[in-house]
Simulated assay, not measured.
Amino acid sequence: MRDFPPRIGGVLCVPDWLLPLLVPVVAALAGGFLVLAFRPRGGGEGVALLADRMEALSDRLDQAVAQQNERLARSLADSADRTQESARRIHERLAVIDAARANIEALGGQVTTLAGILGNKQARGAFGEVQLRDMLADRLPAEGWAWQHPLSNGTRCDALIRLPFPPGPIAIDSKFPLEAWQALRAAPDDAARVQATRRLSADIRRHVDDVATKYIRPGETAEGALIFLPSEALHADLHALHGGLVQEAARRGVYLVSPGTLWAVLGAMRALMRDVRLRAEAQHLRLEVARLAEETGRLDRRVANLKRHFGEAQADMDQIGITAQKILGAAARIEAVEIDTPAPARAAE
Rank of each mutant, 00 (worst) to 15 (best):
P6Y: 03
R7I: 12
C13I: 10
D16A: 10
L18S: 05
P20Y: 03
V23I: 15
V25F: 12
V26H: 04
V26D: 06
A28D: 02
L29G: 06
L29E: 05
L29R: 05
G31R: 05
V35K: 04
L36E: 13
F38G: 09
A48C: 09
L49I: 12
L50R: 04
R53F: 11
A56C: 07
L57C: 07
L57T: 09
L61N: 11
Q63I: 11
A66W: 09
N69H: 13
N69W: 15
A73T: 10
A73L: 13
R74Q: 14
L76D: 06
R82K: 12
T83Q: 13
T83W: 09
S86D: 13
A95F: 09
A95D: 13
V96E: 15
D98T: 15
A99N: 15
A100N: 11
A102L: 07
A102F: 03
A102Y: 02
L107G: 08
L107T: 12
L114F: 06
A115E: 14
A126S: 08
F127W: 03
G128I: 01
E129F: 02
D134C: 10
M135I: 04
R139S: 10
L140A: 01
P141C: 05
G144K: 05
W145L: 07
A146H: 02
W147S: 14
G154F: 01
G154T: 02
R156Q: 14
A159G: 01
A159M: 02
L160E: 00
L163V: 02
L163H: 00
P164F: 00
K175N: 10
L178H: 08
Q182Y: 15
A183M: 00
L184D: 02
A187V: 00
A191R: 12
R193D: 04
Q195L: 15
A196L: 02
R198Q: 11
A202G: 07
D203Q: 01
D203E: 04
I204S: 02
R205A: 07
R206I: 01
D209W: 07
V211K: 02
A212K: 02
G219R: 00
G219F: 01
S231Y: 02
A233I: 12
A236F: 05
D237G: 01
H239L: 07
A249Y: 00
A250G: 03
R251L: 06
R252Y: 03
G253M: 00
Y255E: 06
L262Y: 03
W263I: 09
A264I: 06
V265W: 15
M269S: 08
A271C: 07
L272M: 13
R277F: 05
L278F: 05
L278R: 12
Q283V: 03
R286A: 15
L287N: 13
E288T: 08
E288R: 12
A290D: 06
A293D: 15
R301Y: 11
N305A: 14
F310G: 11
D318S: 15
Q319V: 11
A324I: 10
A324T: 10
A324F: 06
I327S: 13
A332V: 07
I334A: 10
I339K: 04
D340C: 05
D340W: 04
T341H: 02
A345R: 12
A347G: 13
